[in-house]
């Protein structure tokens, strides 16, 4: 997978592309850790380029949401494709994660 990190104000936006699964979750986790360790607690993950997310990817999301909660920050994921949306729904993760359709939506939500 490919990970790019952008910064908009105090918000870090991570662009994920490829597959978020067993093979890539460690990479994703460490990229998120780098951002968090850099002092940023407002994180958006843009999944536009993600083909699918397996339970390993969901685990990364769960770890991240827990960490950011302790930092009293905000964590939003956006632009999941249909399969990822389905995965988030059937796993119940759509109830514990803030999932937005677009990045703009996510950005405006994270400001408050």
């Amino acid at each position: 997978m490919e990970i790019k990190v952008r910064k908009t104000g105090d918000v870090s936006i991570l662009d994920f592309s490829g597959k978020l699964d067993t093979g890539t979750s460690a990479e994703a986790e460490s990229a998120i850790n780098v951002v968090l360790e850099g002092g940023c607690s407002k994180v958006i993950i843009n999944l536009r380029g993600i083909e699918y997310v397996s339970s390993s990817g969901l685990r990364v999301f769960l770890i991240t949401v827990k960490k950011i909660a302790t930092l009293e920050g905000k964590f939003i994921i956006c632009e999941p494709n249909d399969v990822v949306t389905e995965i988030l729904d059937i796993s119940g993760f759509s109830t514990i994660l803030d999932v937005r359709k677009t990045e703009a939506e996510a950005l405006s939500a994270i400001q408050f």
């Binding site: 339970s55 969901l58 827990k66 909660a69 059937i90 796993s91 993760f93 994660l97």
Partner: peptide
């Protein structure tokens, strides 16, 4: 239990749960 909040959430068993539904 996929209704739990993130604090109580465990990741174990989730994969097979996905498989069954996919």
């Amino acid at each position: 239990d996929i209704t739990l909040g993130f604090e109580e959430r465990e990741i174990g068993g989730l994969g097979v749960h996905l498989v069954k539904l996919l």
